[in-house]
């Protein structure tokens, strides 16, 4: 199994930005979005993240998979919500469900339970708002894996304030990935040569899980045994004795400062809007009501 990172050098504006600035942007926007339920504000954030997304210039081919995943998630969650919400949570807004659009009461024959399902204008708008929030955040973070260079995670988070050791263990992890992937395929071959057939895992769930041991155990134990040498090699080269220099240098360019400034404004703005102006709560446009003839 030859694994490959989704990351690729694309020389886009996004990738020219300093990784720290981009993380700050992503996190502040995420925290801002989740302040709002008003689709007008949500529309703004969705737009913002879409702009960011398209600046990343990802191809449909490489993102097809995650998109199907996201869409299924959205559908399932909204579906579930539409059926079983209305009690507490952030969905308290739905308690007054006056404008009923569609409704069924169905008595289950025999048992005698009544199932009461109803769709209201509020629920529809709420579902819309929800979808916008989920999409905004998904769209915001999908490019991470594709556009951040795995080999700069360490220095990035060091400069964002993590300790040397933790930051370096990130770099080290990315260093191990190809090696371990190779070991895994070796183990897979070795076990198949002993008649082990992953494709034909039989038995109940438990039995199937136990049957993963021949794959997982050798790879894990092998890696742990090998770790002793690596620990020695690092100790021998003074790892962790004093604050270390990181060869990769990160420098903020004016555009990075701009991005960070913008992020801060957005966050502070959102907090103020909610806390002081008390705007951005759930809101049902009259247009929609009229649309359904209320």
């Amino acid at each position: 199994m030859l694994i490959s990172w989704r990351y690729r050098e694309r020389n886009t504006l996004i990738q020219k930005l300093d990784p720290r600035a981009r993380w700050i942007f992503l996190l502040t926007v995420m925290f801002s979005v989740i302040q709002f339920w008003d689709i007008r504000f949500l529309a703004f954030f969705l737009g913002l993240s879409l702009v960011y997304y398209f600046l990343a210039r990802l191809t449909w081919k490489e993102t097809r998979r995650v998109w199907t995943f996201v869409l299924i998630l959205v559908v399932v969650i909204i579906g579930l919500n539409a059926l079983i919400t209305g009690r507490g949570g952030s969905t308290a807004v739905l308690r007054d469900t006056r404008h009923t659009v569609w409704e069924v009461r169905w008595v289950v024959p025999g048992v005698g339970w009544t199932i009461h399902l109803f769709i209201t204008v509020e629920k529809i708008v709420f579902a819309l708002a929800q979808m916008m929030r989920m999409l905004t955040i998904a769209v915001l973070f999908i490019p991470v894996a594709f556009t951040f260079n795995p080999n700069h995670y360490g220095v990035t988070f060091r400069r964002l304030g993590l300790p040397d050791k933790v930051a370096f263990s990130m770099d080290l992890a990315f260093r191990f990935v190809p090696t371990l992937a190779h070991d895994f395929s070796l183990t897979l071959d070795a076990q198949r040569a002993r008649g082990y057939e992953v494709e034909k895992l039989s038995g109940g769930l438990i039995a199937q899980i136990r049957k993963m041991a021949p794959l997982i155990v050798p790879v894990t134990i092998n890696a742990i045994v090998g770790a002793e040498d690596i620990v020695n090699a690092m100790d021998l080269r003074c790892f962790g004795l004093r604050p270390r220099t990181w060869l990769q240098e990160l420098r903020y360019a004016p555009r990075d400062d701009a991005l960070i400034g913008f992020s801060v404004v957005v966050l502070v703005g959102s907090l103020l809007a909610r806390a002081l102006l008390r705007i951005g709560d759930f809101w049902v446009p009259d247009a929609v009501l009229r649309l359904f003839g209320f």
Binding site: D171, F174, I230, N232, A233, C238, F239, T245, W246
Partner: peptide, 25 residues
């Protein structure tokens, strides 16, 4: 050490060779 695969800590040649010097600050 015996097995180079088990003592290299950098993903790229440059980082690997620089590792010790980085640690010395």
């Amino acid at each position: 050490l015996q097995d180079p695969e088990r003592q290299i800590v950098g993903s790229f040649v440059l980082n690997e060779v620089a590792f010790g010097l980085e640690n010395l600050g």
